[in-house]
Design a binder for these strands. Sequence first.
DNA 1: TATGAATGAGGGTTCATTCAT
DNA 2: GATGAATGAACCCTCATTCAT
Lengths: 199, 199, 199, 199
Amino acid sequence: MRILKRKIIENKEIKEANLLDSAFTLFTEKGVKETSVQDIVNKAGVAKGTFYLYFKDKYEIQDYLIIKKSKQLFEKAITSLKEKNIQDYRERVIFIIDNIIDEFAKNKLLLKFISKNLSWAIYSDKISNIIDDSSIGLVDLFLEDIKNINIKIDNPEVKLFMIIEMTSSTVYTSITSNKPLPIEKYKPILYEEIKKILS
Amino acid sequence: MRILKRKIIENKEIKEANLLDSAFTLFTEKGVKETSVQDIVNKAGVAKGTFYLYFKDKYEIQDYLIIKKSKQLFEKAITSLKEKNIQDYRERVIFIIDNIIDEFAKNKLLLKFISKNLSWAIYSDKISNIIDDSSIGLVDLFLEDIKNINIKIDNPEVKLFMIIEMTSSTVYTSITSNKPLPIEKYKPILYEEIKKILS
Amino acid sequence: MRILKRKIIENKEIKEANLLDSAFTLFTEKGVKETSVQDIVNKAGVAKGTFYLYFKDKYEIQDYLIIKKSKQLFEKAITSLKEKNIQDYRERVIFIIDNIIDEFAKNKLLLKFISKNLSWAIYSDKISNIIDDSSIGLVDLFLEDIKNINIKIDNPEVKLFMIIEMTSSTVYTSITSNKPLPIEKYKPILYEEIKKILS
Amino acid sequence: MRILKRKIIENKEIKEANLLDSAFTLFTEKGVKETSVQDIVNKAGVAKGTFYLYFKDKYEIQDYLIIKKSKQLFEKAITSLKEKNIQDYRERVIFIIDNIIDEFAKNKLLLKFISKNLSWAIYSDKISNIIDDSSIGLVDLFLEDIKNINIKIDNPEVKLFMIIEMTSSTVYTSITSNKPLPIEKYKPILYEEIKKILS
DNA sequence: TATGAATGAGGGTTCATTCAT
DNA sequence: GATGAATGAACCCTCATTCAT
């Protein structure tokens, strides 16, 4: 009996994951507005009504996905960071940002889907509700770094927020339209300014 | 005859202005997506078909409005600047930004409508097509300022772009949700960083 | 469960028949062009969107109806033919035509709706797709008749086509405007010519 | 003064001819339904309102054109006939029909525009109202031929009507879709039947 | 749970026609 | 006569959401 229930629960999770995957593929391929609920359920192989058993509407699934994908990006970057042995806290921040920019440069569809909402994803209150989360994010990592050094930085959280906003909006334009500079030329300028902010 | 024609042309301009005003009011009150062409023409007191004599679709009127309103903001700020006698080029940039932020703080609906598209409005190629423009913008003003001083700045255009992006995205969050700080507390920190970038 | 499903399917068929009936009534009463999809769904008592679950557009329902009604006409005539004992293949063709002409004379709205498309309905490739059909049509009946007699006719199919076209276009004018003669006076002349063609 | 008035009248005629030419070109290029009044006036280089000074609506101009073009076809064929010296009245009818079929085969757009309305154009009461006409048509020519020979034909007008209807509907299908036979193979069969009808 | 038929408001757009100029 | 801006009904169609099964 308990096994049957577990199966049902697993089945539910599979269906939900299925819907999320389908939605993500379609959102990045054709855009959120251009993707209908019908498209999503077709791809997922479930009935239209089923969608509404799992999500309130199309935008709930979008929010969920933005947060999930953003988190994955940071997690991957932080994992890479731990393999290196970078001491300087500024270099550590830049390493993570560089890592994520490279990911975006490789996957422009992901960039288009997330970028404009990156900081929202990081700071959203929804994050805890939606995703069962135990991993450390960029913000916590940075604040801990700051605590561990002697240099005093005013308003470290605000500074980090500024860095994230500036980075995500300018990098978006740089990657998608090479303006004001192509990403590889823009990077050194960006990192220079980040260092200034963190000094 | 010529007078009659003039009347017709004036009439057309009045109607166009009417549609733009109505659209702007509705866009800021309920959002672009939630506003239908029907809503706009109802408010403007014209027939639905008339809308399509002036604009291709809802999004053309949106673009037009974003650019127009952005331009007005900068013009007002630049006019104010000219009344003061600020010499330092960094202070001049900050004066303009401060001016615009205050405007946004007073008019949050305008902020919501424009902010996310501010840099697009500034750099859009559409600007010249849509709006008959003879006035100077922030970019030109800044570049001229730079030319007139001896200090050499690397990539001034890129720096300005970074400032605009960082400002508009962080200020948006600050004004609409007081995060990471309320706008009055955030301002000095922001201006400090802008000065660093311009040094 | 199976019974429930059957109910749904029956329900669907009722709704489709409902839409077809409503469309047919409106098409014959006011004409196809003057009938809107809105009119059809109003009469059928379903929502607009429902229409598009069953038909691609107004013209698909029109095609469907023309073929369906034409087929019914021929079927009825052929059924009558079988009750008689007419041996001569020419008389058999004329019997069917006469039968259909009488039907048209009684129902001028049907005539207006179908007549101009009668041969299209007979020869259309769509016939097999749209209507699940096992009954024999005029063409097959005639060709079989021809096979069963010794007299050799050149190009029997072409001759039949000529008869159908000549009949439907002249009968249309005769019934709707009594030109060049009222239908009862025209019939003998027409049948005389048909016999000549078939000899 | 009188000269000025004539100029105005000529101007009107030029404008009307202009509208007719434009409409005919568009009707045959894209079809009547697909041609808007706007299209016609654009091509004619006049204002939309001007159209309604000359024609009640799009369908009046269509009727006018069908009749005009049909008349031209018959006139041309009859002129050709007069250059030959064909004595047999049946051959004379067939000569004219052959002439017109060839014209249609060369100009399929014209065929599509006229064919379905050929007999309407011949017998329409509108003909005298719309077109100032002094020339002889097929009907009159044929009836005169009949009078001049000794052989008695029953209902000659009816027979001619049948020939025209049968010809125009079958030829249309033959030329546009090679069914039931390509036009060159179909012609001899058709002419054989016409001869039978006229005997 | 899961289904998918049904809904119906709303989308953008076209266009014949009118009428003030 | 000539204009063309304005009208607004009608067009077809989409789609998020509901609900009986």
